[in-house]
Design a protein around this nucleic acid. Structure first.
Lengths: 328, 328
DNA sequence: AACTGGATTGAACATACGTGCAAGGAGCCG
DNA sequence: CGGCTCCTTGCACGTATGTTCAATCCAGTT
């Protein structure tokens, strides 16, 4: 079902945003102090501080970092040479915890995402702790005629998952002024036949069609057998039997609840028949496939995803990147 | 733990700029405090502050302001409707002095210029107090195969003008990594015949050719008969007799030492025959012609330049903009 | 090796900035 | 009209940042 974010063509923003705009000009283009700006705008310095925060948060002010194109970091070069991907290595000290890592990588992705997504585009997004972290920081950018489409269902035995997933989707939707397409199905069906049947429904096939033509896919990685379990494995989506099944099949990870082995293969993994995520042959047709990884515990999963050629653009923390190019 | 440092990259920028880059990432993308960054980079907080300044000054960090495209200021809309130009109104309080105005408008232009100029382009620039102010603030941006070409000579009775003009040109050149083409002739010849002769010289005609195909022209306005005299009139470029001649011909201003009347006409202004600036018929072929004006004293001159259709993009301070749309 | 001028550095200081808080509206019922 | 909540504002405070200055380092010279 289609989900439209409240359009709200801002009749009131006039004042606040117009002030924010001039304040931004004065601060970032003319290097005035907030004090001076406060005086020019006949308000208090604190209000100017708040105006500028507002300007940054709403994407009125856009701060980019241009790596001199001839100097991508050594690591990024190596990753390109080795895996034919565009890598963005996020500097994170080795001492950081995995939570820190995720938060910092997510923040970087959130800030830079606007450079990829534009009007008239469709972006597919997954859910999970990585996507959640990103969603909480996305910097807004106004686009027209663009869509956000959910890649895989989020329901499980306990809940429909609509709340959790739609919260994430919604943040992206409002940030970009995009229409949000939710996917109100469970993450896994009990019976493959149900999936087959539902997939033939017009409402669902329309959504699948959108996935097929999306310009960007954004996803994290699941990593079933590492220390930190991702949400799919902790959230009540899988029974112990299913977990054992994955283990027996030598699965190392998943993208949008579709599982793969270390060599990138998926054949004969029964659970995938019941999963609602996009088949990899479909996913691989998406021109830009952005993967976000934080923490070395996802290394095996990342290697598998690379082997499966699921990734065109990778955001990863420094130490995981080093580990990736380090050993074969 | 640690890895071998890049063996061969640019030996100069290597350390400083690489640190500046990561510092910028940490500061602008991850919102760390300088203190935290200092700790991660094993240096002092003050050094981080300096690194970030460096990153901004060298254009490593690029801060843009995106006016929601549906909301150019009212003034800018009016200017477009009235004169068919893209206007950038720079907010400056009415109480500011003309010196302030110039400085602030110039700063804004300097910050935004990189959005217009790119690789493989040729930009013509004039000289004068306006251009000088801009040049002192222009934010670097690396380009390839681009050129800066001087629009008009700068010599006079006392000096060749090479120092002054080439200082300005040079700043643009280094900021953009562009090749600089100087124009080592006086602003005005004594004898029109000398100009004719020199114009046939291959070295000069090559430069004129470059002016003819330039993508951008950047210039201020001269304003001979207003309170504030611009450099052309104060710097010993014109004799009293010549000045009287301009007055008699009802001249209201000049662009790159080519003079025009209030209605934009230039016919019969004898001094133009001896001027080294580009003929307006040539200038008007340049796709983007950026004019920078600060201060209401240049209003008459600005009206003339608009009548002459010399301007496609105008940067102007707020109160001058208001005056421009105010009266006919 | 000693000297010297220019760059870099961190400590200390002086500003500039972000934010919790209480006070003051502006709507919205009762 | 008062009472209520929600939102905005300016003040005050503590923190974050820019800048000066003396010490140090470094390369080139004597």
């Amino acid at each position: 079902m289609t989900y439209a974010i409240d359009p709200m063509p801002d009749p009131v923003q006039s004042d606040r945003s117009r002030d924010a705009l001039t304040a931004a000009h004065l601060y970032y283009m003319q290097d005035l102090t907030m004090d001076a700006i406060a005086h020019e705008l006949h308000t208090s310095r604190s209000s100017v501080s708040r105006l500028l925060s507002h300007a940054r948060e709403t994407g009125l002010v856009d701060i980019q970092i241009k790596s001199p194109l001839d100097a991508p970091s050594h690591l990024e070069q190596q990753l390109d040479a080795r895996f034919q991907i565009t890598a963005h290595v996020v500097p994170v000290p080795d001492s950081a915890t995995d939570v820190d890592r995720l938060e910092r990588v997510a923040l970087s992705v959130a800030r830079i995402l606007g450079q990829y997504f534009d009007s008239n585009m469709t972006m597919g997004i997954a859910w999970g702790s990585t996507m959640n972290a990103i969603s909480r920081h996305v910097t807004p950018k106004q686009t027209h005629n663009s869509q956000i489409v959910q890649l895989n269902g989020a329901g499980n035995m306990r809940t429909t998952g609509l709340g959790y997933a739609s919260e994430i989707l919604g943040r992206f939707g409002t940030a970009f002024g995009a229409h949000v397409q939710q996917f109100p199905v469970p993450a896994f069906f009990d019976d493959p036949a149900t999936k087959q049947a539902l997939w033939r429904e017009r409402s669902v096939s329309r959504l699948l069609e959108m996935q097929a033509i999306m310009d960007i896919a954004l996803f994290g990685l699941g990593s079933p057998f590492s220390g930190v379990v991702s949400r799919v494995y902790a959230g009540g989506y899988l029974e112990q039997a299913e977990f054992d099944e994955l283990s027996a099949a030598s699965v190392v990870g998943d993208v949008a609840t579709v599982f793969y082995r270390a060599d990138g293969s998926t054949d004969g993994i029964a659970l995938n028949e019941r999963s609602t995520g996009p088949d990899f042959t479909v996913l691989r047709r998406t021109p830009r496939r952005i993967c976000v990884v934080a923490g070395r515990s996802k290394l095996a999963s990342l290697r598998g995803a690379l082997a499966a050629r699921l990734i065109t653009d990778l955001f990863v923390d420094e130490s995981t990147a080093r580990a990736l190019v380090g050993a074969p």
